[in-house]
Amino acid sequence: CHSECLGNCSQPDDPTKCVACRNFYLDGRCVETCPPPYYHFQDWRCVNFSFCQDLHHKCKNSRRQGCHQYVIHNNKCIPECPSGYTMNSSNLLCTPCLGPCPKVCHLLEGEKTIDSVTSAQELRGCTVINGSLIINIRGGNNLAAELEANLGLIEEISGYLKIRRSYALVSLSFFRKLRLIRGETLEIGNYSFYALDNQNLRQLWDWSKHNLTITQGKLFFHYNPKLCLSEIHKMEEVSGTKGRQERNDIALKTNGDQASCENELLKFSYIRTSFDKILLRWEPYWPPDFRDLLGFMLFYKEAPYQNVTEFDGQDACGSNSWTVVDIDPPLRSNDPKSQNHPGWLMRGLKPWTQYAIFVKTLVTFSDERRTYGAKSDIIYVQTDATNPSVPLDPISVSNSSSQIILKWKPPSDPNGNITHYLVFWERQAEDSELFELDYCLKGLKLPSRTWSPPFESEDSQKHNQSEYEDSAGECCSCPKTDSQILKELEESSFRKTFEDYLHNVVFVPRKT
């Protein structure tokens, strides 16, 4: 048989008469490798580009789960590009990614509803959504962080984005990388972005840091009482949809009607710091009717980097990364020049730590249904340095008659930039024990000054392991946590139920 035959053949030295091919099969003959313009397919066939392209389009058009959109890589027609490569849609070739590779997620039936953290986790790592997304989240724990972890990498949506009755959302900033909504599939009414009845939605994105392009379709905003109209108009300008909307697409009466839409800028007039305090004062603000001013709200939190936005980490279910302080308005003076500047002394802060701070007014709604208010920009203030805590785990070892090696770990709280350490030492008198000992005694162990690591005695271990207080009263049991108490109650309830079950099964009433 021919060298490319495997198993047997019907005619000697003829690659077209093989029972099976050793390498690849091409047009009725066995070959060692697939010549151009053919590609290896499933490690035994040679196919042309049209064959591989037909497989790709067949799966793409069917949208069946589990099928493969075949691509070409290293002269092979394979189910998908290997790690580190992405497909070129024009020629199906796998090309190296520039940075992290995109991950295209194809949605069944063309859309997916995100109504819980669990459903959001199914899209973790996706960068391109081939379909439409509907966000409908009523509640949950730590929602802002969970949504950002699972949806934060999405850069492109081919269909539309719909935010509907998501009472738990305060902001859409968890879509931190969303840059493009194509609108290839539109919501009824030709809408590519749809926001309806979101009672706590206050911000779409921080438009000073976020760009969003909507290729096709219109915007729809109705019944978002805490979303200011200025935020919607800003989205029109940034996304390129200005002029597409009709009169009733953006409701003037049901958007922002319960919001404090600040239209003035508060400026800080005085800032002073110490290692654990920050004193702030800002310019006074009074609405047209000074009785509408209820006070100020001061927001602050630790910020290692200057990239904080107002609604980071917030949701309507209680999660809030900001510390909020309510401040009463100052006494009002008739003389504008003698107006008191409101302020606040922030206490209990960490030394040498940068804080993000902003302040906003708290006002009631005027009778004319106009909203007044003022808010400052987010500023960054760093507390002063102070003395560091003591170095940890000092170790001293003498390696000769004239040297001592000293080692330690950095302090747990540096409280500033540590530039150097101060080492103090003092000579001590020799131990009298060394002169009084009889060095001729056998088995004498000389006193040693070398360091030995501390260890816990058996008594201390027994005390720590004991669940009861000892007789001397030195140790006591740790208080039980809520989960331990709940577990004990469940076990007790189970024992009672099981005992009742045994009584009912074992003891049967005697027939009379």
Rank of each mutant, 00 (worst) to 15 (best):
D292F: 05
L345I: 11
T213E: 03
L345F: 13
N248C: 03
D326S: 07
I181Q: 00
C261L: 02
S239V: 14
P411L: 00
K253T: 11
D289M: 01
L227Q: 04
G189V: 03
I135T: 06
L143I: 11
D377L: 03
L147M: 14
L123F: 09
G217F: 01
K242I: 03
S319A: 14
W344Y: 15
Q306F: 13
Q339A: 12
F365P: 07
F275S: 10
P330V: 04
K177G: 07
T383R: 00
T118W: 12
N334P: 13
N255Q: 05
V104G: 06
E156A: 08
V104E: 06
L201T: 06
L212S: 02
K112N: 10
F299V: 11
E302M: 10
E184F: 12
S192F: 01
W205A: 08
A144N: 13
E122K: 04
L161K: 00
R247D: 07
R281Y: 11
D312V: 06
A385F: 11
G217P: 03
N136T: 12
R369Q: 14
M346I: 07
N334M: 07
Q199W: 06
F175H: 02
W205V: 04
G348P: 11
Y160I: 11
A195C: 12
K350I: 07
G110E: 01
A120I: 11
E148I: 09
F311V: 03
D335K: 09
Q339V: 08
C261Y: 02
N255Y: 05
N211L: 12
L331Q: 09
F221W: 03
N399M: 03
K103N: 03
K226S: 05
N340P: 08
I379M: 10
A303Q: 08
G183Y: 01
F296K: 00
P225L: 07
S269W: 14
E283K: 12
T215Q: 05
Q314P: 02
S333L: 10
L201I: 08
L123S: 01
A145G: 09
C228N: 01
K234S: 08
Y223N: 04
A303V: 14
V363F: 03
Q314K: 04
Q258M: 07
G373M: 05
C261W: 03
I129N: 00
V390H: 00
M297I: 13
Q121P: 01
W205S: 04
Q245C: 12
F193Q: 01
T353H: 15
R138Q: 12
N150H: 05
L133T: 03
K226I: 15
E237T: 08
L161T: 03
G159I: 01
R247W: 09
E246Q: 14
S274N: 02
R176P: 06
Q339H: 11
V170I: 14
M346N: 04
P288S: 07
